[in-house]
């Protein structure tokens, strides 16, 4: 039981000590890593297990970010984060009941459409009621507070993923992924389980959105609801191997590093490389990095 949590604890402690040792640059890079660790891990927990590929992470992230923009001035920081998680979770629970009867490509494009719908609705709503599309964040918590918040969320995401995998809830999710109808005839309340998993993943993304929002000083829908956030989450999880826990974590770290070096200097080349990597991984590594070391383990035995 402890064995699965041990690497998480070690990595967590190492990351926790980092602010004392690393430069601000390293810290900001680690922050990006942690954000994608949290997003990809929570995504895999639901979508990886069930096969319900969601491109909607951007919606949850953006809702969390907007909760931060609305409440940062008058609520304590932890409440802001919980608020972000809560709104994203509420949105996922509400929409989940309407969309989780669709499978496969239908579900995938629907989540994408839903995320875009939320972005446009937010743009319109803010323009109508606040008069401007974006919001300025003036009093933001220190970098260190943000760092530890995101670290806590990332550790929580991984711990949740491990705990879920060992639980009946996780077994139910895996059963839905293997054969949903069969799972249902064996007594799994599939509808409720799916909504719960979708909601749990959304809560993590919402919390991350709320925490990361302060990294932008100016919050606007195009930035925080950027569909690329949803896409990148899916890509990282897929390339890491959505069926595992370690895979997406490793892929998230690799991605953040590659992105850091390529994205600013060669933005187009970065995106082309990303596309190529995706295609190659689907063709030659369909179970992700996790599949690679599982295969290696089998050969060694």
């Amino acid at each position: 039981m402890m064995r699965a949590y041990a690497p998480v604890a070690v990595a967590g402690v190492a990351a926790a000590l980092l602010p004392g040792l690393g430069s601000p640059y390293v810290l900001s890079l680690t922050l990006t890593c942690l954000m994608y660790v949290a997003l990809a891990t929570s995504w895999s927990m639901f979508s990886g297990a069930t096969g319900y590929i969601s491109f909607g992470t951007a919606a949850f992230f953006g809702l969390g970010a907007y909760v931060c923009a609305w409440t940062l001035d008058w609520l304590p920081w932890p409440v802001v984060i919980l608020g972000g998680a809560a709104l994203a979770a509420a949105f996922a629970a509400g929409t989940g009941g309407m969309i989780l009867h669709l499978r496969g490509t239908y579900f995938a494009v629907l989540t994408f459409g839903l995320a875009e719908l939320v972005r446009h609705a937010m743009t319109y709503g803010e323009k109508q009621y606040a008069g401007t599309v974006g919001r300025m964040l003036t009093e933001v918590p220190s970098d260190l507070v943000v760092y530890y918040t995101v670290l806590a969320l990332a550790v929580a995401a991984v711990a949740i993923a491990v705990a879920v995998r060992r639980s009946r809830f996780g077994l139910a999710l895996a059963g839905i992924g293997a054969d949903e109808q069969r799972a249902e005839t064996l007594g799994v309340p599939t509808r409720r389980i799916k909504i719960a998993g979708f909601t749990l993943a959304a809560a993590v993304a919402g919390g991350i959105g709320a925490a990361m929002a302060v990294r932008w000083t100016y919050i606007e829908p195009l930035a925080v609801f950027n569909p690329f956030i949803g896409l990148q989450t899916v890509l990282i999880a897929m390339i890491g191997g959505a069926g595992s826990i370690a895979g997406p974590v490793v892929a998230a770290i690799l991605f953040s590093l590659i992105a850091e070096y390529l994205r600013l200097q060669f933005p187009y080349a970065y995106m082309i490389a990303l596309g190529l990597l995706l295609i190659l991984s689907m063709l030659y590594l369909p179970n992700g990095l996790a599949g690679l070391w599982r295969r290696a383990g089998r050969v060694n035995r």
């Binding site: 082309i272 596309g275 295609i279």
Partner: peptide, 25 residues
């Protein structure tokens, strides 16, 4: 077929990135 559909979708996302950014270049 279900797995093919999911992977095909991801591959075409890859194509989207490649073509769009190659055009920008």
């Amino acid at each position: 077929p279900e797995v093919f559909e999911a992977r095909g979708l991801i591959v075409s996302f890859g194509l989207m990135f490649i073509v769009q950014n190659a055009a920008l270049l």
